[in-house]
Design a protein around this nucleic acid. Structure first.
Length: 473
DNA sequence: CTATGGCACGGATT
DNA sequence: AATCCGTGCCATAG
């Protein structure tokens, strides 16, 4: 059986070889495709479907994270680990999806597929259709507004079945999708965090019993309602706002607001997730670098045996496959290791930016980072290219943003204009910036202002005046 | 005359 | 080597 498959070996192309060297510049999704096609083309390569820590290689039976690799070393440095995430590219369906009518539909479908793929393995075959229906009924916030009884009647399945499937959807990434509203969503998210570690005991009651007051941040009222000290209420509220998000699905459609045009309406899975440690929000940041599969790659031992036993004329060709498979199997973990180191360095350098916003972005160059890590600068460039990270506040930003030289100044310009009493001219903005020790030319302010989509001072004045008389904003 | 945008140049970055 | 970015100069609009 094995020999029969070997008759249709596909030729090794130079393009493939070149690709092996370029694994670093692939996003998680692209890497999944690359691995899938390599597995298809090279019979000597095998994926072992056994969960292992993608970093240290230890087996991980029923564990999501490797306890050793996910531990803090106590130095205050960010905790960076690799997280296997099934991207679904091994299912065999083509990557060139049909052109959808609108990007919105495309995004929704991709999001649905993403959910379905995660829960697929835990789903009985006859439940797949039900799950697909439920996911398709989600609204733009990822909520399920249709009454469950109605879905049950339409699908002719029991309410308990629906609830069982829904429970899977709710706990899949992004956690809290498939709930009825923000409140239920927060509860599900809290539940998952409770499984992982300690959470403020007040948090749950605040969401269930003091929802209204929580929305208005009325801590005094919550404290009175729950009979708890105000101090504890504030702590719990801070925990909620830092670790839970009312619209978990939104993070997957680019940044909901903000002028990152072109990204909107696109479903996007980040390649890296940066979060606060929920047990210690002021401690080291927790960074997950996603890898596209849970198993590991190696040269198929059966193929090795076959090479040893085969005829001389076959040996040369088959040997090339073995060599390539072996190289590829080494390159993938190498890539992930580099990504892990790189993210550690970036997050250490940009902690303030990650936690406190654009204005705190520190100047950082790829070249400087390369020196610090002992890597070539082109390696850093490749590793940064085509990848995105999700930040603790839910925004998804390209990794290149960490190297934006002008972001903090642009943000300062935005801030000045947002707080002006009367429209400031570009020259006046230059002077305002100088007071913050930021020295740039007038012409540059004009460019930043334009880049942020802010109108020139005289027109801003008019727009302000006009808005007093018109009803539309 | 003042505020701004277009074009192009040079230096830094990739 | 190619690209990006800040800036100066100059034309133009109000």
């Amino acid at each position: 059986m094995f020999l029969s498959t070997s008759t249709d070996l596909r030729p090794l192309t130079t393009a493939h070889l070149a690709q092996t060297m370029h694994l670093l510049e692939l996003s998680t999704l692209e890497l999944a495709d690359a691995i899938a096609s390599e597995l298809a083309d090279n019979p000597a390569l095998e994926m072992v479907d056994e969960r292992r820590c993608p970093n240290c290689g230890r087996p991980l039976p029923n564990l999501r994270r490797c306890p050793t690799c996910a531990a803090s070393d106590g130095s205050g440095d960010p905790i960076v680990y690799l997280t296997p995430r099934d991207t679904g590219s091994f299912g065999g369906y083509g990557s060139d999806a049909e052109e959808a009518e609108s990007r919105e539909v495309q995004a929704h479908e991709a999001f649905g597929e993403y959910l379905l793929r995660q829960i697929g393995p835990e789903l009985a075959v006859e439940d797949r259709q039900t799950a697909a229906y439920l996911i398709a009924s989600l609204d733009e916030n990822g909520f399920l507004t249709e009454p469950l009884a109605e879905s049950a009647r339409y699908l002719r399945v029991s309410l308990t079945t629906i609830e069982r499937i829904l429970k899977l959807i709710r706990r899949a990434d992004p956690i809290g999708t498939g709930t009825r509203d923000s409140r239920e969503s927060l509860l599900v998210q809290l539940e998952v965090l409770e499984d992982e570690g300690p959470t403020p005991p007040l948090a749950r009651r605040m969401i269930t019993d003091s929802w209204e007051a929580l929305g208005r941040l009325d801590y005094l009222k919550i404290a009175r309602q729950l009979g708890a000290p105000r101090r504890e209420v504030e702590d719990a509220a801070q925990f909620i706002s830092r670790n839970l998000t009312p619209y978990p699905a939104r993070a997957y459609w680019g940044s909901g607001r903000g002028p990152t045009a072109g990204e909107q309406g696109t479903f996007h899975q980040p390649d890296v997730r940066i979060a606060r440690s929920h047990s210690d929000p002021d401690g080291p940041l927790v960074v997950e670098v996603f890898t596209p599969f849970a198993g590991w790659l190696r040269v198929d031992p059966k193929f090795r045996v076959a090479v040893r036993d085969c005829s001389d004329e076959d040996r040369a060709e088959w040997g090339r496959y073995v060599e390539r498979a072996s190289l590829f199997a080494k390159c993938v973990p190498q890539r992930n290791h580099t990504m892990r180191r790189l993210m550690g360095a970036i997050v250490r350098e940009q902690r303030n930016f990650i936690l406190h916003g654009d204005r705190h972005l520190a100047p950082m160059t790829r070249a400087g980072l390369a020196k610090g890590l002992g890597l070539h600068e082109s390696t850093i460039s490749r590793a940064v290219a085509h990848k995105t990270a999700s930040l603790p506040d839910g925004r998804i930003v390209p990794l290149s943003k960490f190297f934006d030289r002008s972001l903090s100044v642009r943000d300062a310009v935005k801030f000045i204009i947002a707080h002006e009493t009367s429209p400031l001219t570009d020259d006046e903005i230059v002077r305002a910036l100088a007071e913050q020790d930021i020295h740039i030319a007038r012409r540059t302010v004009a460019k930043y202002r334009a880049a942020e989509g802010i109108l020139p001072a005289p027109i801003r004045g008019r727009a302000l005046a006009a808005s007093r008389y018109s009803t539309s904003p």
